[in-house]
Simulated scan of single mutants.
Amino acid sequence: MRRSSAYPLLIVEDNDEDFEILEWALQKLSINTPTLRCKDGDEALDLLYQRGKYSDVQQYPRPAIILLDLNLTLMDGHEVLSHIKRDDTLKMIPVIVWTTSSDPKDIEICFQEGANSYILKPMTVEKLLEAVEMLNHYWFGVVMLPDNAGT
């Protein structure tokens, strides 16, 4: 077993502003977890399979946790989640859906596809900081992952 903070957080987010706000919150809270960003589902899968420009395992280790937006261009978040959770080499990586959709169908489908959590993107700075702090405390402070979750 290992602590999830030993490996990076992968943020799959196509919206630059949403990503910058999330990065700001991580810095504001002095959360030192390394982060990687992919702007679409295809890029995320390239990183997870360590292929193409992500073949340098030292520079791009498999993440401990994936923060996944549902509303991505090209391959959407549902497709990415489904692909990850169907693959024996990836399914151990926890996937947290981070989205603006409160549609009960989206929530149900994500959990059916294997999501580990579903979080609505907060609409205020205070709520964002609170959510990021809780996410950090739980996933990078409390949770223990199996050794092969990020390898």
Rank of each mutant, 00 (worst) to 15 (best):
D76F: 15
F140I: 13
R2Q: 12
L47T: 01
G52R: 09
G114S: 01
A44L: 02
G41N: 09
I21C: 05
G150M: 07
T100L: 12
Q50E: 07
Y49A: 10
D56P: 08
K105N: 03
E130D: 15
D147G: 12
N136G: 10
A149D: 01
S82F: 06
L70E: 03
P104F: 09
P61K: 07
E126S: 14
S4D: 02
D88Y: 15
L22H: 04
H137Q: 15
G141K: 14
L90Y: 02
T151N: 05
A149T: 13
I11Q: 00
L70P: 03
D103E: 05
I31L: 09
D76K: 12
D18A: 13
S4H: 13
T35M: 08
G114Q: 00
D87R: 10
Y138I: 13
C110W: 04
K121F: 14
L129G: 11
T73V: 07
C38G: 07
P34E: 05
T73Q: 07
Y138W: 14
S117I: 02
T35Q: 01
L68T: 00
R3I: 10
V95S: 09
V125K: 06
R62E: 00
L128N: 08
D87P: 02
L26G: 03
R2L: 15
A115W: 08
L48S: 01
L74W: 10
D18I: 11
F19H: 07
R37L: 01
R62V: 03
V80E: 00
M144Y: 10
P122N: 02
L10D: 00
E20R: 10
P63N: 01
